[in-house]
Design a protein around this nucleic acid. Structure first.
Lengths: 145, 145
DNA sequence: CAGGATTCGTTGGTCGCGCCAACGGTTCGG
DNA sequence: CCGAACCGTTGGCGCGACCAACGAATCCTG
């Protein structure tokens, strides 16, 4: 890495990828130690934020593909973190609900995220961290959606 | 995405991942249109930067696993972009050399990277782009590197 | 109110990427 | 000279992001 070609080190898209690789590794390792995957956090957080939701809704607001949501819900339901029940108001949908255990699980995963974030942003001052966050937020928002 | 939970939108590690997803998609799509993969660019750039190299050296300076380098070199060699020859000075190594076609190919891929970068950073002013690049560079360097 | 279009959950599959284990062949160090 | 270290290669695993297709349910519109 320290010997990476200079032309790569000056490209923002390369950098954002390297940075993501670092963040990815940190998060994956930390989650793995708790027997979770990144998708679990996204799904649990989305349910907590929006209340009981259909799988299609969860897919849309997390960006996870519908077919992948199925597998994640399976795992979360097996672990007792969510409950999957048919929506009485619309026979096509399942309503996914957070259990108490699931709420605690989400709290635990959020703690993990905070920890890995501190590690990830370690080299930056607080003001710089906020600046980086804002710049990234604008880029992400611009590209929708 | 616009409906993503707020707690996700304020987490830097989540943002850097979303940003990376965007950058990834842009790059992958663009490369795919030219029949290339991201690894091709990394390897070609590394050879161009360091001169003829062994596969192990390319692995180290790109961060790509040795076993994956094999496959990339196979593809690049099949396409005539590099040549793989045993190192006369060390029977364990192969020396990977850029061909003229490979040099042109690298130039083409660099143009693609520049284009996708403009698209990626579109919402930011030039000064902000530079700032984002610097912050990311520090984070990446800190985590080695 | 009937029939086509759309939505939803699910299955099954593809591809890229990152990683790890193991092997035989080569070179280096003591 | 022999073991340690290095190198290329094969094969495999798991996650992440996709896509196609299907039956079931609901909707829209004529």
């Amino acid at each position: 890495m320290s010997t990476a070609p200079d032309r790569l080190r000056t490209k923002a898209s390369w950098l954002v990828n390297q940075a993501a690789t670092v963040a990815h590794r940190l998060a994956v390792d930390e989650f793995a130690r708790s027997g979770a995957r990144r998708y679990h956090y996204g799904i649990l957080a989305a349910i907590d934020e929006n209340g009981p939701s259909s799988q299609a809704t969860l897919s849309r607001c997390t960006g996870i593909d519908r077919s992948d949501v199925v597998a994640v819900i399976n795992e979360l339901a097996d672990a007792g973190y969510v409950e999957r029940a048919p929506d009485p108001a619309d026979g096509r949908r399942n309503l996914i609900t957070l259990t108490d255990t699931g709420t605690r699980r989400l709290g635990h995963l959020e703690a993990l995220v905070s920890e890995t974030q501190d590690v990830f942003l370690a080299p930056l001052e607080p003001a710089e961290r906020e600046q980086l966050t804002r710049l990234l937020a604008r880029v992400v928002e611009h590209h929708h959606g």
